[in-house]
Write a protein that binds this DNA or RNA. Structure first.
Lengths: 140, 140
DNA sequence: GATAAAGCTTCCCCTCATGGGAAGGTCAAG
DNA sequence: CTTGACCTTCCCATGAGGGGAAGCTTTATC
């Protein structure tokens, strides 16, 4: 029953910037908002929930493409939770892979940093390790 | 003494694509390559080492901006390893932060996924958790 | 009621690191 | 000599936004 909000108010309430709200509408992730006579967008409770949904999904690291699928499922009364879970599991796999990659970098870089004295001398283990072996012989 | 290589050969040897080699030159990360009379770029041993250096740094997750600093230090005989280490430590901090963020997402999403039955029913704990509480009362 | 400030609209350009592809010149093998 | 592989530059696209200009509308202040 509350009166619809302008885009700025909706942004403040949902934590999604006005810029992004327009963008989500443009790419079809959100239905086109209602408009006042003068063209201002208006947002009701349902739209606010969709914006909040998108915000939460972004917080969980879902891509906009995944979110688009999730929002469709959310709006679909005939959805199967299997489909939702499949998207979540895929995203969990992506997250695990990214973590593994970052761990790899962290391990390698920590090792190099430990070997670097970090003083005023020019000698540096980090820089030394940065040239692939097969290029060392091709020296100047 | 080896004869200089074309950009494609340099790319194959260093693992940096020809496209990226041109780009690195364009943004000033690499000195302009020598050219044949007909305009083909040529790469000698030193350039190959720089390309390998960039490749390794990318593998460690450094941004191009950080790599630009690292390459400058690498070329500078008067560098202090302190400066190199500072860049590495900063990058390690960035990595830790990203890992923490991904761990947070992973924890939250695993919890939600565990609560979702993942069957043919429409009821889904993941979707339910996606609407921020303060928007639940603003329902349709 | 007038005016100023804030908010809205669309439109265009920027990021970062990289890939795709077109149009056209060059080189090497058959 | 032709063919195909390679090179050149130039423009466009990605994802997930941000910045800002020009111009209109609404709200607040006097």
């Amino acid at each position: 029953m509350a009166k619809p909000l302008t885009i700025g108010e909706a942004a403040a309430l949902t934590g999604v910037s006005a810029k992004m709200i327009r963008y989500y509408e443009e790419i079809g992730m959100l239905p086109a908002a209602a408009r006042t006579e003068s063209g201002y967008r208006l947002y009701n409770g349902f739209m606010l929930q969709q914006l909040g949904f998108i915000r939460q999904a972004r917080n969980l690291g879902f891509s906009l493409e995944e979110i688009q699928s999730l929002v469709k499922l959310w709006r679909d009364p005939c959805r199967e939770s299997r489909e939702v879970k499949a998207i979540a599991e895929q995203h969990l796999a992506d997250i695990s892979q990214k973590i593994a990659e970052l761990n790899r970098m962290q391990q390698a870089l920590q090792q190099l940093a430990a070997d670097c004295r970090g003083d005023s001398a020019a000698n540096c283990a980090i820089l030394d390790a940065m040239i692939p072996e097969h290029l060392l012989t091709a020296a100047v």
